[in-house]
Amino acid sequence: MMLILFYIASAVAVFATLMMITRLNAVHGLLYLILSLLAVGVLFFLLGAHFAAVLEVIIYAGAIMVLFVFVIMMLNQGQKTVDQERSWLQPATWIGPSLLALILFAELLIVIVLGGSAETGQLVDSKHVAIALYGPYLLAVELASMLLLAGLVGAYHLGKPMIKKTWGKKS
């Protein structure tokens, strides 16, 4: 039962990702990405990582993707962009990198297969995660919060000069 669910979710995730990287319209790509993230969220649940599954849905598919939506709306990608994307996506441009990536995949495949097989699915509930987080990983949590703060400040500053420019014009 679990295995069938796993296969279905995996298929959805791979298919959605494949569609995402080939879409010409960024909004379509974004929707497929959300689908892919949700499928991965299901996989997390199946693997017994309930807490991670919840975070995947709320933060990844929820919060982060909303950012993308905002930006895409701000930049107002129209039909013109779609045509441009089409002209960019010629086979000559994607065959080389794809082959390179496939070689990497083949290598990963060999490594995984050679690694032997093992069963998964041991349930790790959020309580254990929380204990570990605020125990041995306390420093990492602090660092992560620092990183978020830095990201926040960085994003704010990168957005600022646009305001400055209008300032300069007025004064």
């Binding site: 080389g96 390179l100 990536a101 990497l104 290598e107 990963l108 490594v111």
Partner: peptide
């Protein structure tokens, strides 16, 4: 940027091949 990314991938391929 894409050229840099490709270079990194190539490097990863080579390193994994060496390790393997």
């Amino acid at each position: 940027v894409r050229w840099y990314a490709s270079s990194m991938v190539f490097g990863a391929v080579v390193i994994i091949a060496i390790g393997w």
